[in-house]
Each structure stands twice: as structure tokens, then as C-alpha cells.
Simulated assay, not measured.
Amino acid sequence: MSLLTENTKILKFLELVGRLKHEKRTGWVLCDIAECESIAGHMYRMGLMTFLLTEETNTTKLDRFKCLQIALVHDLAECIVGDLTPHCGVSPEEKHRREDEAMKIITELTGLAGNTMYELYKDYENQSSPEAKFAKDLDRYDMILQAFEYEKRENAPRKLQEFFTATEGKFGHPFIQGLVKELYKQRDEFEKTHLLNGNA
């Protein structure tokens, strides 16, 4: 393949990925959240959270770089298929099929780099490594953290309870479990303050 052809494909890949900067997360759109986050924003904070895996917090000796890579590719298919949620009327099997097909299109544009991205995506989908399981924890945690941020912004305690209910008891890594505990504590305090101020 000529360098020109290769660069043409890479540019197409980057244009596809660029869509994620503007594509809103479906869950928030369905909940009528104004100015809600993009898919890329979600992946960005997940990526930054991998830097919090220090000698002290990384008790299970995860490969931090692999966790970062998975965080950055786990929703890549959504630049083609969109953010499909259980409320979209698409079965889990069909969602998986569409996303897998999209990932093959995306990764074909980037040669050997694409092979790596596809492997990381499959690892996440199949939850076949400790790093993939940790990335799933990050995915869920970022979602409930974002939900709490919207509840605070709108001064509406428990408005987005469904996201907390959907993830309850599903966090596996000790470090993330600690963050979940702190988030729940702050959310309870926010609700109490709201009630004390006569906003019941």
C-alpha cells in the first residue's frame, strides 16, 4: 500500500473518531439532560482514571497502559453505530453484531494499529482480562459520577437513580469500590442538605 493511500485511510479514521467529540451519550439525552457529555468526554475521563493506578492503589498489579488503551477504544464503534442503550429497542446480540462490524471497518483503516485496537475491543467485550474488567468498572463508575454531577447541577437529588440501581454491586476492583463508597456518601450528604434547605 502506498503512503498516500495509507494517509488517506488514516485521515478517514481520524474523521470517524472525531465524531465522538460531538456525539452525545444516549442515556443523558433520554433523561432530558441539557448540555450533556459526549462519548469522547466519557472515554477521556475513563482514560485519566487509569493514571490513578499507583503502587498503592494497584493492588492487583494491573497493566496500567493496557487499561488506558482499553478505555480509549471501548466505545470506538459508536462513531458509526451511535450510543445504543437498552432503551433503543436493539437486542444485545444485534448491538454486539453492529459494533463488531463497525470496529472491523474502523480498524481496517489503520493497518497494524487497527489489529491492536480490535484485540483490545474484543478483550473488553468478552471481559477476558483483569484490565478489561477494570475498564468496565471505570465505565460504570464514570457513569454514576456523571449522574451525580448532573443531579447537583440541577439541584435534583436522586433524579438519576436508575443509573445507580443498574450498577449497584457490580464493581469488582477494590480501588473503584472505595471511590463508589465515597460517591454514595457525598450523594447522601447532598440529599440531606437539599432537604434541610426546605427543598423537599
Rank of each mutant, 00 (worst) to 15 (best):
S129P: 00
K136M: 10
R25S: 02
H74V: 03
D137S: 03
K104N: 03
E78C: 10
R187H: 02
M1K: 07
H74L: 04
E189M: 10
H74N: 04
T54R: 13
K181E: 15
C79N: 06
F13N: 01
K185N: 11
F171L: 13
E108D: 15
K152V: 11
H173F: 00
S128R: 11
D75W: 02
A77R: 03
H96A: 10
F164K: 01
I106Y: 03
L196N: 13
I33T: 13
S129T: 15
V90A: 07
D142M: 01
K181I: 07
A40G: 01
P174A: 04
E35H: 14
T50P: 04
F163M: 12
T110Q: 02
V81Y: 01
E182L: 13
I70A: 13
E131D: 11
S128G: 04
Q177E: 14
K95S: 10
M49Q: 06
L195Y: 11
E108Y: 01
E168C: 02
L109M: 07
G198M: 13
L112D: 14
F148E: 05
F65Q: 15
S129Y: 01
E191C: 08
K61I: 00
E149H: 08
K159L: 08
D83G: 06
E189Q: 08
G114T: 08
M103S: 03
K104D: 11
E93T: 14
V29T: 12
R158M: 10
M143Y: 00
T110E: 00
R153V: 03
N126Q: 11
M1W: 11
R45C: 00
N115G: 08
V17T: 12
L138M: 11
K192M: 09
N58H: 12
A135I: 03
I33M: 14
L160E: 06
K185M: 10
N199C: 04
E6M: 06
R140S: 09
L72M: 15
L11S: 05
K152P: 00
N115M: 13
E182A: 06
L14G: 00
T57L: 06
Y141N: 01
E168Y: 10
G47I: 00
L76R: 06
H22N: 07
D83M: 05
P157T: 09
M143V: 07
G82T: 10
F134D: 12
H22T: 14
G18W: 07
G198W: 01
Q69A: 04
E99N: 12
G47F: 13
L16A: 07
T193Y: 07
E182D: 15
G89L: 04
G18V: 05
K152F: 02
K24Y: 00
Y124S: 04
P86N: 15
K24C: 01
G178N: 14
A102D: 09
A102F: 13
Q161W: 08
C31D: 15
L4D: 15
I70D: 06
A102T: 07
L72R: 15
